[in-house]
Amino acid sequence: MTPGITFTIDGKQVTAAPGQTIIEAADTAGIYIPRLCHKPGLEPFGSCRLCTVTVGGRPCSSCTQPAAEGIVVESDTDELNEHRRALLEMLFVEGNHFCMFCEKSGNCELQALAYKFGITAPSFTYQWQKHDVDASHPQILIDRNRCILCARCVRASQDLDGKSVFGFVGRGPNKRLAVNAEARLSDTNVDVTDEALDVCPVGALLRKHVGYKVPIGKRQFDHTPIGSDVEGEPAPDDCGCGGAENVCQCTQSE
């Protein structure tokens, strides 16, 4: 086993394999750092900024920052959580998020994060920008009202499906999700089995005809806050050190 990189997150010692990012090491160690654009299996992107942590006091996105020996990472602090709350509120007022009828509700990562952070209403002014819906494809729907520009579909289409169905056009507040055709999704080589359709954290990219399949009460985040899967319940014989045998205080003392 290659010797790992050792560092701390919120005072807890964790190890990372060379080349791993902070968020990957945190996941392995059972520490959940909130995120939206990051998804294991996709290239790091660093756009949502929710996973911002401080390394030695300096903020950086943990999904792009490589783990390094001895760094001191802070994530679950009042200050950083306040920034995360502000970022979530920004996303809620930027898009038009009608959770009450959205097919993704209950399984939506944006919504789940807002629940986790106890947001009952964004304090910023709603923007109510008009965003286009593309229902041209018989089996797939794009609702840009809900898009948070995380580029998960862009990356998945390119790297997992070997296509380039999705991308961005425009800049600043006018940046929006676009498809690789003059106008419509149905004119692209997208397929309903594409992995790109599985990765959307919100309800912007959906397969048709399967909405509301899971009843309220049985959906992913109805009872369990987002990140619970990462944090998990440690196994009885697990000290929670994340497998860092050479540094784990509890195994050394035993």
């Binding site: 660093g46 756009s47 949502c48 900024r49 929710l50 502000a86 970022l87 920004m90 996303l91 007022v93 930027e94 910023f124 002014t125 923007q127 948070i148 520009l149 961005f168 425009g170 800049r171 600043g172 507040p173 006018n174 940046k175």
Partner: peptide
């Protein structure tokens, strides 16, 4: 450029 949330939305707000 609109890449990240805080700059894309924050400046407008």
């Amino acid at each position: 450029c609109g890449y990240c949330t805080p700059c894309r939305v924050g400046n407008v707000l």
